[in-house]
Simulated assay, not measured.
Amino acid sequence: MSQTSVLVLVGSLRAASVNRQLAEAAVHAAPEGVSVSLYEGLGDVPFYNEDIDVPGSVPAAAQSLRDAVAAADALLLVTPEYNGTITAVLKNAIDWASRPYGSGAVKGKPVAIVSASISSNAAAWAHGDTVKAVGVAGGTVVEAAHARFGGIGERFGAAHPREDAEALTQLGATLHELVAAAGQRVDA
């Protein structure tokens, strides 16, 4: 069996973000035969604008994102909640990956969403908006693979999520479901 590749897009640009730490923990929770990598550079991708999305002159950072999404077998999106919704950086990444319309890099790609916030609602609104955006963009949302973390300030305030056995178990289960969906997609 070949290695399954999962690309992780983190909706927070802050270096010490707990959402980024959850993404890093997902790398450690990866099952055998699964390569999980964090995409670096979302902060360099310009806001989506059809005027600059022209074949042959797509901005390099946007093309790099598209290429990485296209090369992955599946996507794991990790989102905090900003003002009750998805972050602009993650929405922008989805927008770039969804184009050209009908054949973007995200089309048909299995996608799982992990959301986390300091509130007990575990970024439920951002999670729902991310599910909606991915679905409209053409991704295959893998509901069974989702994970949500609430109260992250208290839960992960003193330790990295990779030191939390329950978090690693949840992330491992998320990846297992996502990889299973990627296998079903490839076999279909």
Rank of each mutant, 00 (worst) to 15 (best):
D53T: 02
A30C: 07
H28P: 00
L22T: 02
A23V: 03
V111L: 10
L90D: 02
V27W: 04
G104V: 01
A15M: 03
P59D: 11
T85D: 10
G41V: 13
V106Q: 05
R14A: 12
A29C: 05
L77P: 00
V6M: 11
Q21W: 02
V10Q: 03
T79I: 04
G108H: 09
L7M: 09
A88Q: 14
V8Y: 06
V27S: 07
A16M: 05
P110D: 13
V89Q: 11
A68W: 05
A29E: 01
K107V: 15
R99L: 04
Q21A: 14
A105L: 09
G104S: 10
A123N: 06
A93K: 12
G102F: 12
A116S: 14
A29T: 05
A68F: 06
Y39D: 07
V78H: 01
I94W: 02
A126P: 04
V106L: 15
A122I: 02
G84P: 12
V18L: 13
V36S: 14
E24F: 04
A72T: 05
R14T: 13
S12P: 10
S64Y: 00
E81M: 01
E50G: 10
V58Q: 10
W96F: 10
V78T: 03
W125Y: 08
G102P: 08
G33R: 13
S117R: 04
A70W: 03
G11V: 01
A25R: 04
L42M: 15
V36L: 11
P55Y: 09
